[in-house]
Nucleic acid binder design. Structure first.
Lengths: 111, 111
DNA sequence: ATATTTAATTGTAATATTGCAATATTACTA
DNA sequence: TAGTAATATTGCAATATTACAATTAAATAT
């Protein structure tokens, strides 16, 4: 064993978990926060801002891109990154639903 | 190398990433969703519901407990789990802030 | 008392992740 | 046409995660 058994879960759960998982590393969360602050941002800025090597930052950017959280556009010799609108909407809906469901009956826990 | 360099990130980022990371596995997300649906839930129910072994479920419950997402109370020979109110509030605030910041200037991306 | 049920722990194998040096690639610049 | 800058890729070592069998522990049931 050793690998996650994705096949026993619904596609939707796997997809949502993949999004949370991508946000679940401090370097990647720092990248997302930078994009929230500056709206767009070139890769090299992140490499200077975060104390990790260029290949490591590149790898984290790839993870965020693969789940659709960010997108990158080539601009000369740079790549300009920004958050992916549809993905943020998906996160909004999912977390919103979650919290609504929580409010409906979680105000007190009887255990 | 091989371990995440937590020391180069702010405590808050590490903490938030840890929460997302805990939600970033389909089994753990399934547990959280079950608790959202049923409010409380005994461990054995999860073991029967999710096609993973009892030790594996127990391990995932521990991860969720360690970051404070859930709490468990012993009830006879069972353990009754529920979501942790203060943690859910933290998630609400963080994601809320994130989405507000996004709305402020992310409606269109110029790259 | 003994058996059963529920859950946690321990140990371990398989696999994935993290991080970086070295290198490749691509585009601009002098 | 070099030379430089920004990024991606490859290969690898260190570490973490996932999953489970076996075992333990604690409470209940017979």
């Amino acid at each position: 064993m050793g690998a996650t058994k994705h096949e026993i879960f619904q596609d939707q759960i796997n997809e949502e978990a993949a999004i949370f998982n991508a946000l679940g590393h401090p370097a990647r969360l720092a990248i997302v926060k930078t994009l929230l602050t500056y709206k767009t941002c070139v890769g090299n800025y992140l490499t200077n801002e975060i104390a990790l090597s260029q290949p490591t930052i590149s790898q984290h950017l790839k993870v965020l891109k693969n789940v659709g959280i960010i997108q990158g556009t080539i601009e000369g010799k740079s790549v300009c990154y920004c958050l992916n609108h549809s993905l943020i909407e998906k996160l909004r809906v999912f977390v919103g639903d979650m919290l609504i469901q929580y409010d409906l009956h979680q105000s007190n826990c009887n255990c």
